[in-house]
Simulated scan of single mutants.
Amino acid sequence: MDALLSSFTAVAIAEIGDKTQLLSLFLAARFRNKTAIIAGILVATLLNHAASAWLGVWAAQFIPAGWGPWLLGGSFIAVALWLLIPDKDDSDDTAMLKYGAFVASCVLFFLAEIGDKTQVATVILAAAFDDAVWMVIWGTTLGMLAANVPVVYAGSWLLQKVSLDWARRSACAIFILLGIATIISS
Results as ranks from 00 to 15, higher is better:
7 S>Q: 07
8 F>I: 11
15 E>W: 02
15 E>Q: 14
15 E>T: 08
16 I>H: 01
17 G>F: 04
17 G>M: 06
19 K>V: 12
19 K>P: 10
20 T>W: 03
21 Q>V: 07
23 L>K: 06
24 S>E: 09
27 L>G: 02
30 R>N: 14
31 F>T: 13
31 F>W: 09
31 F>A: 12
31 F>C: 11
32 R>I: 10
33 N>C: 03
34 K>L: 10
35 T>W: 08
38 I>M: 05
45 T>I: 10
45 T>H: 02
50 A>Q: 06
51 A>N: 04
54 W>Y: 15
54 W>L: 15
56 G>Q: 11
57 V>I: 14
58 W>S: 10
58 W>E: 09
59 A>C: 07
59 A>R: 01
60 A>F: 09
61 Q>D: 12
61 Q>P: 00
64 P>N: 05
64 P>F: 05
67 W>L: 10
68 G>A: 13
70 W>R: 02
70 W>V: 11
72 L>C: 02
73 G>D: 02
74 G>L: 03
75 S>P: 00
76 F>H: 11
85 I>T: 11
91 S>D: 10
92 D>Y: 05
94 T>Q: 09
98 K>E: 15
98 K>Q: 14
99 Y>R: 08
101 A>E: 07
102 F>I: 10
104 A>F: 06
104 A>G: 05
104 A>N: 08
106 C>K: 00
108 L>P: 01
109 F>M: 14
111 L>Y: 02
111 L>I: 15
114 I>P: 08
118 T>F: 06
119 Q>A: 12
119 Q>P: 02
121 A>D: 07
123 V>E: 04
123 V>D: 05
125 L>E: 05
125 L>D: 04
126 A>T: 06
127 A>N: 00
130 D>W: 08
134 W>E: 10
134 W>D: 03
142 L>N: 02
143 G>F: 01
143 G>M: 02
144 M>R: 11
146 A>C: 12
146 A>G: 11
147 A>Q: 01
147 A>M: 07
147 A>N: 03
150 P>W: 09
153 Y>V: 10
156 S>Q: 14
156 S>C: 00
164 L>F: 14
165 D>Q: 14
165 D>A: 14
166 W>Y: 13
166 W>L: 15
168 R>E: 08
170 S>I: 15
170 S>W: 12
173 A>Y: 05
174 I>K: 09
175 F>T: 12
177 L>A: 15
178 L>E: 06
179 G>W: 10
179 G>Y: 04
179 G>P: 05
181 A>L: 15
183 I>P: 00
183 I>C: 06
184 I>R: 12
184 I>W: 15
